[in-house]
Amino acid sequence: MATRKAAVRKRVLWEGLPPLPPGDYTSIRVPLPPASAFRKDRPISDLIKAHLEHIHHAESARLPKEKRDGRRPEDIRTEAEAASYIATVTRILHPKGRKRSRRKAGS
């Protein structure tokens, strides 16, 4: 399980360098964070609290009441909860930011 999680993090955060022509290269190894570093239940920081306020402001400005998510920023406690709410509103504000699949057709 931990290996799979690490692989996922590596795939998403890491785009390996394609082959380079011969040259004077200094190769530097970058360690991966441990699986235990991922804590989506971490309480949100002041930065994320402010971010939620901004997102909520945008939601209130853009959407009629009946179409709003309904969650209140002050009720959100963890990073996973915050991310879920932020994704909902961002999807409306910026639908082009929807994740594009990296899989090639047929794979």
């Binding site: 799979r4 996922v8 795939r11 955060l13 964070p33 989506k40 920081s45 996973a80 915050a82």
Partner: peptide, 23 residues
């Protein structure tokens, strides 16, 4: 933020304390 998306776990990589600096 640390969160899940369609690709799985997405670890925060902003280095904001207490997020992992290696990420």
């Amino acid at each position: 933020t640390d969160h899940d998306n369609d690709d799985g776990e997405q670890i925060a990589c902003d280095q904001h304390p207490d997020h992992n600096v290696q990420a």
